[in-house]
Structure formats: C-alpha cells, structure tokens
Amino acid sequence: METKHPTRFNHLKKWESTLAACIRCGYCFEHCPLFKYTGWESDAPRAKIITAFGLLSGELEPSEAAADKLFNCFYCKRCEAACSSGVTLTDIFTDARKDLVEMGYAGPGTTAVTDLTCAQCLLCVTACPHEARFHGENGIETDLVKCQSCGTCVSICPANAVNILHTFGTGKEDLTRASARFLDTHASAKAIVFACNWSYYPDLQASRLPESETHDKDYDIYVNMCAGRLEPETLMAPFLNHAWGVLVACCPEDDCQHKNGGKRSKQQVKRIQSILENLDIDPERIQVVEIPDGDKTLFQAEIDTFIDHLNALGPIK
C-alpha cells in the first residue's frame, strides 16, 4: 500500500511491558463474541494481543489482514473482565488503531460505514456516544479510532445508510437466520430469546451438545450487541416461523453502554405489541425484561416465567 509510512507504532509502544505481561492463558476466548462466532483462535482477543506484539516488535509486517484483527472488536470488554493478568486489552487495540490509521489502514473491521444514501441529517453525529461520527470531506464519516462498534448510528439512521459490515453473527440477518433455523429444526421450540451481550453472556457455546440433550429445547438464546439495535423485522421474524413468543433482554436504562439502548428496545417491543394486538394476538407474547450485567439467575428466572406464560397461552392459532 503506497500511502503507508514505514512501520512505526508510536502509540502502541507504551504498551510494550503490558504485552509482555499478558501470560497468553487464553481465558479471554470464551468471552469474545468474535471467537464464538468464527471459532478461529486468530480472531480471539489473545490473537489481537499477539498481533499487536508482532507489529510492535517488527516480527509481523503490517498488512490489511493484521490491521483487520485490531479493527474487529465490539468493545464489550468481556475479555478484560476475564483477563487473568488484568490487561486492558481494548486500550491496546485503540492505540494500535491510531498507529494503523496513521499508516493509511482504513478498516473498516467492525466500525460503522456510511453508504451513498446518507442524507447527512447529522442524527448519528449527535447520537454517537463515542463522538466517532463527524462531517468530513466525504460526508458523514467514522473515526476509526473512536468507533466502538456499538451500532447506535446504525439503528438511528432514518435512511438505513449506516452499516456495520462485519457483524460476526450479531447482525439483523444473522439473528433472523439463526432463530429461523432453531424454530425449523426443533419441534419443541416455543420461544426465541434475544439477549444483550452486556447484560447476559451465554455459556456452553464453544462445544456442541448431543441431540439427546437438545431435542426437546423449548427456547434458544441469541446474543446481539445491544437490545436497542433489534429491529422490528428481527423481532417479528420468529412469529412468522411459528414461535409462540419472543423475549428481549436489555440492560437497565441507567446502565446502558450504548446510550438509551434499553429505552429504544422497550419502544420497539411496544410497537410490536401493538401490531400483535391489531392481529388479535396476545401482545404479551413479546416481552422485554431488564437484566443487570451478568445476572444469570434473574435472566433464567425471567425466561422460565416467560415460558410458563407461553405454555398457558399455547401456540398462536
């Protein structure tokens, strides 16, 4: 790439001893939505740290593929919470991005991209909680260093002109496809549960259970990057695939990482409830519940209550 400068990682340099302090235990794997989706260790947070070390030490030549590893991150910081060495991984990724941008690498990784249908209404610029959207030479642009891939701009854009291209299983189409597959393959299926990555993170995704353990599952959980980003089509799709109900888990309103995600998800669910009511379907077949960060017990209790409710209602006729 001609625009690139010689390899200089001035921002990354300050993390030299932290990169050595990472003991590379890999405890971050299980917590990373990217790794869980691709199953490739080279997409896991540890690999990003190794990449950063390789770039800084000069053992690894900068390249689009190496840069992509650093531009692909949803900043959920679950890796940091799980880190046995207390490494603040995303701070390192951010500084690596600064260097890579200065060298001419342009992502986008998981950062938001704007297409030509953008009306430049600036709604996303004011809504971005990370001040990563700005009016630049090419219209509304994304600051590749500041963007944390929260998707606020995606969900707020009235023209659907903002997208996250690399969704790693958390995008609208991914969720719709996955839920349809579950409903289609499980005669016992009743509900789809959409869980916000920040409030709940499911275990047992790195391994596949035997058919004997899963054939009578009545619900499945699909993690998204913010309940506020769930669109009406995604929430309605399970009903078209004969689901009895849909449960949305969001973070408490005062604890949303993405500014108003909880509020937006409640509004969205309310809209779907009105649609169901108009169709003469019990509106309580779609519900939203607030789950504080990591409260798995409450989450399970809410799911159980919801399934009991659906059992009382029976299938939609």
Binding site: R24, E41, S42, A47, I50, T51, L60, E61, A65, A66
Partner: peptide
C-alpha cells in the same frame, strides 16, 4: 495461510 493468522498460531501460553 495469511501471516497474521499464522503468527497468532505460533504461540501458546
């Protein structure tokens, strides 16, 4: 086969 992937697989703990 990309060097950035191979580099990550060159390590363990």
């Amino acid at each position: 086969t990309d060097p950035s992937d191979l580099y990550a697989f060159g390590s363990d703990a």
